[in-house]
């Protein structure tokens, strides 16, 4: 077969049957990989299946923690972004310090530090709540930078125009900046939300019985590594892929030329 068939250029798009063939090839590759991994594992699946309730509970907890952290970090991230743009130097510096410290250190270290050091010091023993807070605090630092770049992507002529027609600062944000910034931040925002869901897996190290922790427990009870961790991977994909698809949809919906 001639490899040049697979070229897909704007002025010479690949024919339809080549596109179909591409999908078939990728599916075959995936199926081949799976069958190689799965060979002779039927009995183990039965053992793991008896623990499906553990998986289910873990997955639900992961969804709950992710949703809560998603909401909390969005609010906190937006406030941080505004603080980062504040003309009050102390507030702006504080926001910068926070953002750089949390973006500069590994999440795993933050989880260990805030749970075993900070939470222990203030006698805070609500593990799921601590997980949500740590995850939100971490994600908010990234969201703040995403929101800030979105706000700053709105040109200065737009701001002057908003001033010229007499909009107040709050109105300028509401009617001019946010609607335009929202469209610009959608792709990185979806990426960050997907990251947050995946990052919640690290909370397993402090014994929070979320999805990854559940899989680890099933594995240690059944000694079936593949059968414990393969559903784990699928479980996360089931959450992240829709977010990315939704962002594509919204992006198209809010599309306009500038």
């Amino acid at each position: 077969m001639n490899a040049s068939l697979f070229f897909d250029r704007p002025n010479a798009p690949a024919p339809r049957w080549v596109r179909v063939l591409t999908v078939v090839l990728l599916a075959a590759l995936l199926a081949g990989g799976c069958s190689w991994l799965l060979a002779g594992s039927i009995s183990n699946w039965r053992a793991v299946w008896s623990y499906h309730e553990v998986f289910w509970q873990g997955w639900l907890l992961t969804i709950r923690i992710s949703l809560e952290a998603l909401a909390l970090s969005s609010v906190f991230g937006l406030l941080l972004a505004l603080a980062r743009r504040s003309t009050f130097l102390l507030l702006r510096s504080l926001a910068m310090l926070y953002i750089e410290l949390l973006r500069g250190s590994p999440l795993l270290v933050q989880i260990l530090f805030f749970w075993y050091v900070v939470a222990a010091k203030i006698d805070f023993d609500n593990l799921p709540a601590a997980g949500v807070l740590i995850l939100s605090g971490f994600s908010a630092a990234y969201l703040a930078e995403i929101f800030r770049s979105g706000i700053e992507s709105v040109g200065s002529s737009q701001l002057e125009s908003a001033r010229a027609i007499g909009l107040s600062r709050v109105q300028t944000y509401r009617f001019v900046i946010f609607p335009q910034a929202f469209r610009n931040v959608l792709p990185p925002l979806a990426g960050q939300f997907a990251s947050l869901i995946k990052d919640s897996s690290l909370l397993s190290v402090i014994g929070l019985s979320e999805f990854t922790h559940s899989a680890q427990q099933v594995n240690s009870s059944t000694y079936s590594t593949l059968e414990s961790y393969l559903p784990l991977g699928f479980g996360y994909l089931l959450l992240t892929l829709p977010i990315i698809a939704l962002s594509r949809l919204l992006e198209r919906r809010f599309h306009y030329e500038t």
């Binding site: 002529s157 737009q158 002057e160 125009s161 001033r163 010229a164 027609i165 007499g166 909009l167 107040s168 009617f175 001019v176 609607p179 335009q180 469209r183 306009y256 030329e257 500038t258």
Partner: peptide, 29 residues
């Protein structure tokens, strides 16, 4: 700001809001 609300200001680069239609641009103020 109150003073500007009684003025009509037009710029060289139009400075219309790209996310709003012509009508919505006029409606906003």
């Amino acid at each position: 700001r109150a003073y500007r609300t009684h003025l009509g200001i037009v710029f060289q680069a139009y400075n219309l809001f790209p996310h709003l239609s012509a009508l919505e641009n006029i409606l906003l103020p």
